[in-house]
Amino acid sequence: MMADIFSASFITGLIGATLRMSTPIILATLGEIITERAGVLNLGIEGIMLFGAASGFLATLATGNLWFGILMAALSGVLLALLMSFLAVNLGLSQHVAGLGITIFASGLAMFIYRKAVGSPVVPPTVHPFSPLAIPFLSDIPFIGESFFKQYFLTYITWALIPLVSIFLFRTRFGLRIRTMGQNPFAADTVGVNVNRTRTICLAIGGALFGVAGAFLTLAHQNMFLIDVVGGRGWIAIAMTIFGNWNPLMGSLGGLMFGFLDALQLRLQSVGIHLPIHVFLMIPYLMTIVALVGVSRKATVPAGLLKPYRREEKGG
């Protein structure tokens, strides 16, 4: 058994799976970081991911086109995020209540349209999922090539997005504005930045990423839609946002860690250690909690988070 674990194929497989498994977490974490940096906590994430998983899957099932499915997932993510924006930004409702409401609503709606579209067949319908894309030459490098350069296209995009989001937040003027309104919306307003509009845009970008993250699960990771396909990955992304101290690089590192543990538990199951399956399923979540306890005490929450911005509240 130990020999199995330390074999080359086990390790290359593990690294490859880590990158795959962490893709949706990292996508969702990046989305949540952008949103929270602007001062909005989007607890609708879990529901939006599930809805993206369903709409992406159904769109592909209907047309046979995987990228059309991804597009639909992104669009539906944007729509739900705009609903969140209307409630939490425009109406200024509690971000907790609005976000949880969106999650419950979107989860129900996802199941509803899925049932509406496919009914209740004994064998759930499947699509032909994305296949890994081997990068010429690089994938031929022994050991490394197998793990790193035979991934889904979406995984490559995700890895490209990590530095891009980082540059966007810390090196562009929009990033500066977003960070400012997340800390002190009043400061942003008084220098002529439209706080609520920018927050809406950030929510929309985040929503698109959530939707795609969900669709990755039904169009790449698996090839069918199940009600528990997201399995709390949205909440994990929220945790990783805190774990990463609202920094895209650190947050992605957290996502990678979760992906690794998720991949590891699957592999350990197949190696044949005799423990109930639930123990393995628990590992990534348990480790996330442990990591959070250690790190989150040092986290500095954006000061404007959770606070709706209103201008004309009281006269001076």
Partner: peptide, 24 residues
Amino acid sequence: HFTLVPSQSVLENAMIGVEGGFFL
């Protein structure tokens, strides 16, 4: 009540809103 962002530098606080250009 000042409208500064404590966690940002003097420079960032000064340039916000009039950054000019896409990149800072």
